Amino acid sequence: MKRTRLGLFGLLVVALLFAAVEPALAQSINERMITNLNQSLLYVAIPITILVEAILIYTVVKYRNNDDPQPTRENRRLEITWTITTAIILLFVGLASFVVLANPYISLVPDAAGQQPQAQQQVGADLLINQSGATAPTEGDAVEVEIIAYQWGWTFHYPEAGVNSSSTLAIPNGTDVYLHTTSTDVIHAVHVPELGLKQDSIPGQYNTIKTNATETGSYQLYCAEFCGSGHSGMLANMTVLPPEEYQTWLDEQESSGGNASAGGNASSNSSAIGAVSAKPA
């Protein structure tokens, strides 16, 4: 009876742990893939942890009064079993991680050396800075945004519409979006945790993030790389809008002069745009 109760208690603990790691509704393809990978790895790790801890506790309790311990006897079957089991677990972890990490939404690989000039020509013609590293979209209806980081703020440049913003990064939901990020001074990092986005902004080059937001809403964007005394205030809103509202937002920014800023950010935003535009190719 005691063993039965312990077994039921163990099953209850496992069920609660599984419920605790059940992910919420994903806000983007990036976030969903990362969450699903973490969940899959937890489903493997939790039973192993419980098994190891159960064996450890059992051994400590059973042999706590043993004053004459004897060396363990060789058990070849047991050694082969746990060696094969470990190999299978590691193979699963490796393959599951590779499938996610190799996906363009998680790690967008720059175009091959032979294709890079063409991709750079497709992307760089409308960007404020002519630098290498930007990856051209493969989808005809994809949206491109240039994210320029500087101490201590952001410039969000929409090449097709000629719109600039310093406070809001707006994108349409259900559409592939390419974010080309760079910096004018030191290393920064674009980070939107709720959408599973993070990428370094490095002076002299572009890093491209590919994303597809599935849920509308406003999400916090901030710099994740310490960049000086104003680092903590380097914030912005990433707003995901329905396609119709996104187009309306672009039209409003164009009609207002193509520079969407908030409060005192207007002067710093204009200065940053002028600085990067003046940089040599």
Results as ranks from 00 to 15, higher is better:
134 A>S: 12
150 Y>E: 06
148 I>P: 00
156 F>H: 02
138 T>I: 05
136 A>G: 06
160 E>N: 12
146 E>A: 05
164 N>L: 13
142 A>V: 01
140 G>W: 06
160 E>I: 10
142 A>R: 00
156 F>V: 02
161 A>V: 11
158 Y>P: 03
138 T>S: 08
157 H>W: 15
151 Q>M: 08
162 G>Q: 14
150 Y>T: 08
155 T>K: 03
145 V>Q: 05
147 I>M: 04
160 E>Y: 11
145 V>T: 07
156 F>Q: 01
152 W>K: 05
160 E>A: 12
159 P>C: 04
152 W>M: 08
158 Y>I: 07
137 P>E: 00
163 V>E: 07
148 I>S: 01
169 L>H: 10
165 S>N: 11
141 D>P: 00
158 Y>D: 03
156 F>L: 02
167 S>E: 13
139 E>Q: 05
165 S>V: 12
135 T>N: 02
168 T>V: 15
154 W>T: 00
143 V>L: 14
162 G>C: 12
134 A>Q: 02
159 P>A: 06
149 A>N: 12
134 A>I: 02
139 E>V: 02
151 Q>S: 12
161 A>D: 13
134 A>N: 03
161 A>L: 09
146 E>P: 07
155 T>M: 05
169 L>M: 14
157 H>Y: 12
160 E>S: 11
151 Q>V: 10
160 E>M: 12
139 E>P: 01
160 E>T: 11
165 S>H: 13
139 E>H: 04
167 S>Y: 14
157 H>S: 09
167 S>G: 08
140 G>I: 08
162 G>Y: 15
164 N>A: 14
143 V>H: 04
154 W>R: 00
160 E>V: 10
140 G>H: 05
140 G>Q: 07
140 G>M: 05
155 T>I: 05
152 W>H: 12
146 E>C: 08
144 E>Q: 14
146 E>F: 10
163 V>R: 10
147 I>W: 00
150 Y>F: 15
148 I>L: 14
164 N>E: 14
154 W>G: 00
165 S>E: 13
151 Q>T: 11
151 Q>N: 13
153 G>W: 08
164 N>C: 13
162 G>D: 15
153 G>Y: 08
165 S>R: 11
168 T>E: 14
158 Y>H: 11
167 S>A: 12
149 A>Q: 11
153 G>M: 03
145 V>D: 04
159 P>L: 08
166 S>R: 10
156 F>M: 03
143 V>A: 04
135 T>I: 11
141 D>R: 01
150 Y>S: 08
156 F>P: 00
138 T>N: 06
140 G>S: 09
137 P>I: 00
149 A>W: 13
145 V>Y: 10
156 F>Y: 07
138 T>K: 05
137 P>V: 00
151 Q>P: 07
138 T>L: 03
166 S>M: 10
168 T>M: 13
145 V>M: 08
159 P>T: 09
165 S>L: 15
164 N>V: 11
167 S>F: 14
149 A>Y: 14
151 Q>A: 10
